[in-house]
Amino acid sequence: MAKATVNKIISFSSVDGPGNRTAVFLQGCGFDCRYCHNPETIHACIHCGECVKYCKPGALTLVEENVRAADQRTGRKRVHYDITKCVFCDECFRHCPHGASARTRELTAEQVMREVRRNKPFIRGITVSGGECTLWRDFLLELLSLAKAEGLGTLLDSNGSYAFSEDPELMAVTDGVMLDVKAWSREEHLRVTGQDNACVLRNLEWLAAAGKLTEVRTVVVPELFDCRQTVREVSALLAGLGCLDARYKIIRYRPMGVREEYKSLTPPTEEFLQKLVGVAVGYGLSDVVVV
């Protein structure tokens, strides 16, 4: 069974898709968005041990790495995480010099499913998010297949860097994708995320046409990119494909969780956000919300 690095599992989430869902956050992301609210999910831990110094309850410890062959030791150290001791004070990743989090667990799909099962009477499905969940494609396929077999809905929350159209096997067990669309122009997208957006836009079109687009999200940071252009182009594209009931979630940038060097970005005004809503509604979108 494939394992993934799981950053956290939220048993009841009201913000990761329709209804009550268990949200599974996987570690690692190919984008490096300046306004990222969870920058600790971007990189993988390199086990330098810096965070251990700041872990007061002793949930993080530096242990000697065990290699597979019996009794062979490399002498290398690993950061070990004990979730039962963790008080979620976030001190570890606040002090991480690599933009990573050691507060993660390596879990198989079945192990994750075991945690999902406790919530089953109260949830309508699961949402796998990140980081970027599609970096763990094989794990994802197993987890979503297990969830589907137990009658749960399955959603992915993605930055759009994975070509969904080329993976019918994964799409068969995915009810829908909640897609982040950031800057519309390639140049701005590069500046905001460090990556090209051609794949994101292809995904937007393909998912909408395939009836797999549950939600589009745009985090509004006016001084970073032309937000109005994004909202306009996304709305026009959805309207053109007759995909009017996908939710468009317009997200207000807030400095919470954002890295120090980007914290100075200005949050948008309510007036500006309402203008964006007006644009989307003007194209006939029926479910536009601001959060």
């Binding site: 009841f12 329709p18 209804g19 009550n20 949830i123």
Partner: peptide, 9 residues
């Protein structure tokens, strides 16, 4: 924005 959350509970 998501009253279905409460409905599910």
């Amino acid at each position: 924005k998501n009253p279905q959350y409460v409905l599910d509970i």
